[in-house]
Computed example of a mutant assay.
Amino acid sequence: MSLLKTVFDCDAPVALITGSGAPRVGREIAIELARNGCRIALHANTSADAARQAADELTQRYRCDAIVTQGALEDDGVPPRLVDETVTAFGRLDILVNSAAIWSPTPIGQVTAAEMRRYFEINTVAAFLCGRAAADVMTDQTTGGSIVNLGDWATVRPYLDHAAYFPSKGAIDVMTRSLAVEFASRNAAIRVNCVKPGPVLLADEVPDQQRLKLCASTLTGGIGTAGHVAHAVRFLCENTFINGVCLPVDGGRSIYSPDGLQIGENTG
């Protein structure tokens, strides 16, 4: 029996994954949870057709029930609606993964106040609203539930041209800890954690030189996969004694400085 089935005392736990329509990290998380016996609620905004195709594939491959929810997360009414549609379809909600996010390189001088607000609305506020709506359901479930937010390893070492993106993702760490405290006060079986991916799913057009540089920037000497992130999400859903944790899944990149001085190196 899948450990998730044991944790949630259910033959087919229910998972809602935002931002899972397009074939990126969210989709891989949905596949990982379906493979381990979950019923799946995919979410998409502009990738609804791709999400419907993915739902069909999950049903055929893993014999699981799957639905598609749709909506723009900057609309405050969408997050609770996604939860409502999931519970209406399946009767419960055991796992919420806040995977949806936007990012685009923009020089800081070109970042507008409206763009800054949009980053926070989608990357931060929507995760908060989805989490709160999910917790309202999980509070009444004996087995509670697991909420996993996706942050970003590079909030500790931001890079250029993402001055709107990183503040919105940096808030995820604090929000994760705060919601863990809030929701556990309602039901001690509700857990809120965070996964902070490193370099995964590089675009095909990334030059080989840059790819090699990224490989050299991790302790593992390689680039991660969406599967590494998905496995970490499942682990946090399975482990009932982990709460309020922000887990880097980055091959050690957040602690590694390959170009830095080594201990004992002569600097004279």
Rank of each mutant, 00 (worst) to 15 (best):
L202P: 01
I263C: 01
L247Q: 07
R234T: 06
K213N: 14
A203S: 14
P199S: 15
A188G: 15
I223E: 02
L179V: 07
R191P: 05
T240C: 01
P167H: 08
A184Y: 01
P167D: 11
Y256D: 04
S217Y: 01
S257C: 01
P258F: 10
I255W: 03
G268W: 10
A230G: 09
E238C: 12
N243T: 13
D259H: 13
K213L: 13
S168T: 01
V195W: 06
Y165C: 05
I147F: 10
I190K: 07
F183R: 09
H231W: 04
A180N: 09
H231V: 14
V192A: 11
E238M: 06
N193S: 13
V206G: 06
P248E: 08
L202C: 04
G222M: 01
V206N: 09
R253C: 03
G260M: 04
N187C: 12
D250H: 12
R211I: 05
C237P: 00
G145D: 08
L160A: 15
P248F: 07
G244W: 12
G144L: 11
L160F: 11
L247V: 12
N266T: 00
G244S: 11
L160I: 07
A203I: 02
R211N: 02
E182N: 05
R211E: 01
G224P: 03
C246D: 10
V174Y: 04
P248A: 09
N187S: 07
